[in-house]
Design a protein around this nucleic acid. Structure first.
Lengths: 69, 69
DNA sequence: TTTAAAAGTAAGGTAAACTTTACATATAAG
DNA sequence: CTTATATGTAAAGTTTACCTTACTTTTAAA
């Protein structure tokens, strides 16, 4: 599963820490999501999408490999 | 967090088991999501929304209480 | 009114999302 | 070169999404 987190973040010149604070998680969580270490929860996905003003499906890109949860 | 899973499911006359099979989880998982026992993962939310042909934000309703993940 | 299908409840287990802490590297400005 | 800011890595711990199994209740149709 791909995300546009780092792309959107850089475009809008937001640091990982700023984003982490805005959505109320640690910087580690943002790093892990950006690096694909694990997938966001639904609520976190929603908060991140909201932060950037886009739909969840636009921030998070679901591939065929995501047959598995 | 509220969901429209059972609403959409009844409207379209789909059983819990049919939905479970379609998105590749157990019936227990559907029951637990409908009863609010826990929240869907992002991928599962996407599959359920896709099954019903709507956006994630339409199937899953995020309230203020969802400040917590 | 019996039966079958659908829905619900309960409990123990696994995997993964997220946390915390601490240290390392990169980048750029002074 | 030094310092500050941003990014990255690692590891151990907690919580929770999801699974499996098994049993109970509701609904509706024969």
């Amino acid at each position: 599963m791909q995300t546009r987190i780092s792309q959107y973040r850089k475009e809008r010149k937001v640091t990982q820490e700023e984003l982490a604070d805005a959505v109320n998680v640690t910087r580690q969580t943002i790093i892990s999501l950006e690096s694909g270490k694990y997938k966001a929860s639904l609520v976190l996905a929603h908060k991140i999408a909201q932060f950037f003003g886009v739909a969840i499906e636009e921030m998070f890109i679901f591939d065929k490999e995501d047959e598995n949860l």
